[in-house]
Design a protein around this nucleic acid. Structure first.
Length: 478
RNA sequence: GGUGCCGUAGCCAAGCGGUUAGGCAAUGGUUUGCAAAACCAUCACACACCGGUUCGAAUCCGGUCGGCACCUCCA
């Protein structure tokens, strides 16, 4: 469908807080959606919430909270976390619990076509009826070692006709949430919910289906089998999978327990720094995470993400400098350097190339560098600069927001928050610093430079970075 | 056993057969009452190893070594 893009992204199973892996995934697809929209496409973005699932039931039993209530609580926390990293809300956010009818109808359709069979209250997809099975993950059923992960339980295998068959519907056990169905009370198996929801909201065939690399098999392979067996149409034209965050060269995952929740990270760095961090690596490549440990053995920081945070500070500081330039001081007309004139287009070109976010950041780096150069000159020889160039810079900076979702915060608030957080982390009192700065300003006014330098030295020793400008002194904590 | 992915200068990281990727760190400079920030320059003819194809290879092909992931919990 020209001019339109229909996108389905596999959303979280809401039994716990979002971790960095989730953040990466949804930031990547957020950049994709923003970029496609900025390119003029009308995007319909659907991202589900899986609120009916074995893990939710298990967690629910552990915490003594009703499964759907538990799911609702973590759904809310996900939304908050994603909002904090400036992810746009999807246009539709379907929940499994609200699509049971669609799921049952799809299963019935598969049974009618001979692609699925009921067995003791369960329903299984009959993999041998779908000859293309394995086309996404490059697997052949004959080559697979069934149960290689040692996680097959439940005596499910006895109810299956073939070990590769997978559950579409699971009969409810005592005390589990269940819905009525032609095969008795039960709940959907993992996989079928996404088929039902994406087809409900995007049709039998759509443009992009995405998710984490770990969903390629079995989740997406099974979605293809279920959906295409039912409709005879290609489910998605394109499959997009983001790589993992790695910890000590291993995948960050719930099962390994080596994950950081978004909320833990938000205490140590600005959420937008996390977003920037995701952009530093191509979406398909692994993203290695390091952290530093404090005296008590606690996680004290994330060096790479802190570097990203400084880049975001640089972005906001640059924006402030550009915003402060008075248009009336510049020449009204003049040529614009191609690098500035084309910044937004170059950004778009980088993202057109398989969503090359690091290449986009390289464009951003040049734009910011030249913007600061412009701001330096604006303070000294504004008549040499021209208004069209200033407008080009502002357009370029705006493109960083529309294309990459960077710089959407209030800059002053961002910078103040970062400073306060660092001050608190170092046990510094901001008011004391401000008082010293005021004393230094007074000393400078009286041309008592020795005293002023003494105060500067004290502040420097505290780690304070002072910036004198003709009309004010500002400070930051690097 | 099967199937994918990866190995780029001190660190992070683009690159998809031929023109500087970029960032961080470090060093020198411009600027400043002194600084910081910012900007400029250098570090950078780097691409795991061994062969091959080509006028030309980080990029293609074959092999070796090392690392990772998936083969029904995972973003």
């Amino acid at each position: 469908m020209p001019g339109k893009a229909r996108i389905y992204v596999c959303g979280p199973t809401v039994y716990d807080f979002a971790h960095l892996g989730h953040i990466r995934c949804y930031v990547v697809f957020d950049v994709l959606v923003r970029h496609l929209r900025a390119s003029g496409l009308e995007v319909l973005y659907v991202r589900n919430v899986t609120d009916v699932d074995d893990k939710i039931i298990k967690r629910s039993a552990e915490l003594g909270q009703e499964p759907l209530a538990l799911a609702a609580r973590f759904t809310e926390s996900y939304r908050e976390d994603l909002q904090r990293v400036f992810c746009l809300a999807p246009d539709v956010e379907p929940k499994v619990s609200e699509h049971i009818d669609d799921i049952v109808a799809l299963i019935e359709r598969l049974i009618a076509r001979g692609s699925a069979y009921a067995s003791e209250g369960d329903v299984y997809f009959k993999v041998e009826t779908f000859p293309e099975y394995g086309k996404l993950s490059h697997r052949k059923v004959a080559d697979m070692e069934f149960g290689a992960s040692g996680r097959v339980g439940d005596g499910e295998d006895k109810k299956k006709q073939h070990p590769a068959d997978f559950a579409l519907w699971k009969a409810a056990k005592a005390g589990e949430p269940s819905w009525p169905s032609p095969w008795g009370p039960g709940r959907p198996g993992w996989h079928i919910e996404c088929s039902a929801m994406c087809m409900r909201h995007l049709g039998d065939s759509f443009d992009i289906h995405g998710g984490g690399l770990d969903l390629v098999f079995p989740h997406h392979e099974n979605e293809i089998a279920q959906s295409e067996a039912a409709t005879g149409k290609q489910l998605s034209k394109l499959w997009v999978h983001n790589g993992f965050i790695e910890v000590n060269k291993e995948k960050m995952s719930k099962s390994l327990g080596n994950f950081f929740t978004a909320r833990e990270c938000f205490k140590l760095v600005e959420p937008e720094a996390l977003r920037y961090f995701v952009l530093t690596t191509h979406y398909r490549a692994p993203l290695a995470l390091d952290w530093s440990v404090g005296p008590a053995g606690e996680v004290s920081g994330f060096p790479q993400i802190e570097e990203c945070e400084r880049r975001v500070e640089y972005l906001y500081t640059t924006r402030q400098r550009i915003a402060a330039i008075a248009e009336s001081t510049l020449a009204p007309d003049g040529a614009v350097e191609p690098e500035l004139r084309d910044a937004a287009a170059k950004l778009a070109r980088a993202l057109d190339d398989d969503l090359n976010m690091p290449a986009a950041l390289a464009v951003a780096a040049e734009l910011l560098r030249r913007s600061n150069d412009f701001a330096d000159l604006a303070a000294r020889k504004p008549a040499k600069l021209n208004l069209p160039t200033l407008r080009a810079i502002r357009a370029g900076l705006a493109a960083l927001s529309t294309q990459l979702g960077l710089g959407l915060d209030d800059g002053a608030a961002f910078l103040r928050r970062v400073r306060t957080r660092r001050a608190n982390a170092r046990g510094m009192n901001e008011a004391d610093v401000e008082a010293k700065i005021a004393a230094r300003i007074a000393a400078r006014k009286n041309r008592e430079f020795a005293r002023a330098d003494e105060l500067r030295a004290e502040l420097t020793a505290l780690g304070v970075e002072l910036m004198d400008s003709p009309d004010a002194t500002t400070w930051r904590l690097p």
